[in-house]
Simulated scan of single mutants.
Amino acid sequence: MAEQEPSNFLDDLANAEAEEFGEEMEELDDEVVELDALRAERDELRDKFMRALADAENSRKRAQKERREAEQYGGSKLARDLLSVYDNMKRAVESVGEEQKEASAALIEGVELTMRELISVFKKYGIEPVSPQVGDKFDPQVHQAMFEAPVPGTKAGEIIQVSADGFMMHDRLLRPAQVGVSSNPG
């Protein structure tokens, strides 16, 4: 076997080492690319996880709010239907004259007790009457104007007659108080 010249041998050795170094660098580049891809996938999965966690928390809060509202206001339809019972009992008590009170004292007392019990049950469930008085200022948030009329000695926007009490259930209006309002110019 013929001996190579030292310069060729060194060149071949340098070339072999350079080729080996190049291969190692390519492998390193491939590993870096793979590592970058794994990091991007990790970040994407972390983002999806955080979004899913936030969605779950929002759903939980929404369900809690809906449950609270159902507890507080679930009976509002029934309560509205019972308001006519209250109105009729109130009219019955107010329509009784003095001589009828004496003749039917026990019956009238029973109706008044039933009406008080109804009001007590209303209060138990957060239902409070809105009872404006003649002379109060009209408030469209809790009153419904049934008519307007010019009444001497009153100011415009003053309540001149109360037809029916209104009712609030917690912080919501079940029914506005029905009132007549003065239309006198101020």
Rank of each mutant, 00 (worst) to 15 (best):
M1Q: 06
E3D: 04
E5P: 03
E5L: 12
L10A: 06
A14T: 06
A16E: 11
A18T: 07
E20M: 00
E20N: 00
G22V: 02
M25H: 13
E26L: 14
E27W: 10
D29A: 13
E31Y: 11
V33G: 00
L38Q: 14
R39L: 11
A40I: 02
A40W: 09
A40V: 02
R42H: 08
R42S: 05
E44S: 11
K48S: 14
M50A: 13
L53A: 05
L53M: 05
L53N: 05
A54S: 11
D55V: 02
D55A: 07
A56M: 08
E57Q: 13
E57H: 10
R60E: 13
K61R: 12
R62G: 02
R62K: 09
R62H: 07
K65F: 04
R67N: 07
R67G: 03
R67Y: 07
R67K: 14
R67A: 12
Q72G: 00
G74D: 10
G75I: 03
G75C: 05
S76D: 14
R80D: 00
L82A: 00
L83R: 06
L83M: 04
V85S: 04
Y86G: 00
Y86H: 10
D87H: 10
D87F: 06
N88R: 11
M89N: 09
R91V: 01
A92V: 08
A92H: 04
V93H: 13
E94S: 08
S95N: 12
V96N: 15
G97T: 11
E98I: 05
E98W: 11
E99Y: 11
E102A: 15
E102I: 06
S104C: 10
A106G: 03
L107G: 07
I108G: 05
G110Y: 06
V111N: 06
L118E: 00
I119K: 15
S120I: 02
S120V: 02
S120K: 15
V121D: 03
F122V: 10
F122I: 08
F122Q: 14
K123S: 12
E128F: 05
V130H: 08
V130E: 10
S131D: 11
D136H: 13
D136Y: 09
D139E: 06
P140V: 02
Q141V: 02
Q141G: 01
Q141C: 01
H143W: 13
Q144I: 01
Q144V: 01
F147H: 11
E148L: 05
A149S: 15
P152N: 12
P152C: 03
G153S: 10
T154H: 04
K155V: 02
K155N: 08
K155L: 06
K155A: 07
A156G: 14
I159R: 14
I159F: 11
I160W: 00
I160H: 12
V162T: 05
S163P: 03
S163V: 05
S163F: 14
D165H: 15
D165C: 10
D165Q: 12
F167P: 04
M169D: 10
D171Y: 10
L174F: 04
P176T: 02
V179M: 00
V179T: 01
V181I: 07
V181E: 03
N184A: 08
P185R: 13
G186W: 09
